[in-house]
Design a protein around this nucleic acid. Structure first.
Ligand SMILES: [Mn+2]
Ligand SMILES: [Mn+2]
Ligand SMILES: [Mn+2]
Ligand SMILES: [Mn+2]
Lengths: 219, 219
DNA sequence: TAATATTTTTAGACTTGTCTAAAAATATTA
DNA sequence: TAATATTTTTAGACAAGTCTAAAAATATTA
């Protein structure tokens, strides 16, 4: 239906649309590690195919159709990641690159059966929600640990940085999805966050606290 | 490592090498539904990369490396087909096209884990042997039903024609992998083969008998 | 073996997706 | 608001993979 390049552009535009309205050429170029001129070329192609709204110099947004395609790719990506972790025992820091390839396998029947085979998982290994076959999924309200106050807490539910180094670090600290943490202190000097988890105390840097997301406890 | 096009050419050359020695440009063109001129172009590229032995006008053969690559693609194809049938409940006539895409997922670690997850299957859903991770597999001696004599028989173990129509026909006649058949008669007029299977008798055409393979009973 | 037929290669063109360098438009700032 | 900086687009080129048409090599057959 669509080429691999088109799919990657649509996915990038979708993700960039989440924080902010229209997406700029340079943002897309950065996200895809390509050049602005290449992006412009592709924008004309995608606009031609009615997958994006594009007026030059004005940035782009996805059409209804474009968004459906993008969400479908994300669905495939996350289901394959779940498969790799839950069925093939890969670690959560090992699956992203493989899923980048697998998300382009075209059959929707295949992905629906995979979904069923795994019992319709709601989240991928990184806590990201998996859209259903109609493209519906609720974006849960996640907050970086950095934004919550002392003596408040929540359940680790997602990450902002999906890089292997970051995921490996979290794994080592046992800061994994589902764990409950409480902020015990924020050190004034450098904003290091002191956490309580289980019966241990541990410290994480401001940067880590910015990239680790929790579902905030109802108080 | 290799492009999708290169992988498809190597696989085609490998399969064509099985019956006969050096493979001709036209054979490859036919197998890949492309033109002879395109094949020549690619042959230069593959020869450059030391994946085939090529002297112009003389046909080609795979190098050691080329053969390893080809067998690895076939391994992936067959393991994915097995997965689709055994885990996702697809029928044997539905999986080939999906596997044509999936065989290009690059990770060998992934395919080795998939292999392990499924318990190292020896054959794909069509009876074709699955190479192990070192590329080793025994080609079993299969014979078309058309070649065996009256009152002899064997176990259905493979097909020569992998088309959906043929597989669907076999399914309907319950002529599936693992069934034991005996040739009871060969009708002189048109070489229709009369089979006994379980306690039933059925007739298959010469063409079907040519494309349905058995492991011959030791007598 | 010479004429003819077939196969294979070459030449030149096209598409997709990319790039660099330069031009045009927009945004910033003095 | 005018000058400057930044962003985006255009122009032209390139690699991969494909095609058609024509030329060259090989195979067939009279
Ligand atoms: Mn991922
Ligand atoms: Mn993920
Ligand atoms: Mn197949
Ligand atoms: Mn098969």
């Amino acid at each position: 239906m669509h080429t691999l390049a088109e799919e990657n552009y649509l996915k990038a535009i979708y993700k960039l649309s989440l924080q902010g309205n229209s997406v700029s050429t340079n943002q897309i170029a950065t996200a895809l590690a390509t050049k602005a001129s290449s992006v412009t070329d592709m924008m004309r192609k995608l606009a031609e195919k009615m997958l994006i709204n594009y007026t030059r110099y004005q940035g782009v947004s996805l059409t209804e159709t474009g968004q459906k395609v993008a969400i479908n790719i994300i669905r495939k990506h996350r289901l394959w990641e779940y498969f790799l972790v839950e069925k093939l025992n890969f670690k959560w820091d090992e699956v992203h690159e493989m899923a980048e390839e697998m998300e382009h396998i075209s059959s929707n029947e295949l992905i629906d059966r995979l979904d069923e085979f795994m019992g319709h998982p709601a989240r991928d290994p990184h806590g990201d929600p998996i859209p259903d076959s109609n493209g519906n999924f609720k974006k849960i309200d996640l907050k970086p640990i950095a934004t919550i106050a002392v003596n408040e807490g929540g359940v680790i539910s997602g990450v902002r940085d999906h890089s292997a180094v970051f995921l490996q670090y979290l794994e080592k600290q046992q800061l994994t999805i589902g764990k409950h943490i409480t902020v015990k202190d924020i050190i004034a000097y450098d904003n290091t966050v002191v956490l309580q988890m289980d019966n241990n105390t541990l410290q994480i840097s401001r940067e880590v606290a910015n990239n680790l997301l929790i579902t905030y406890d109802k108080i």
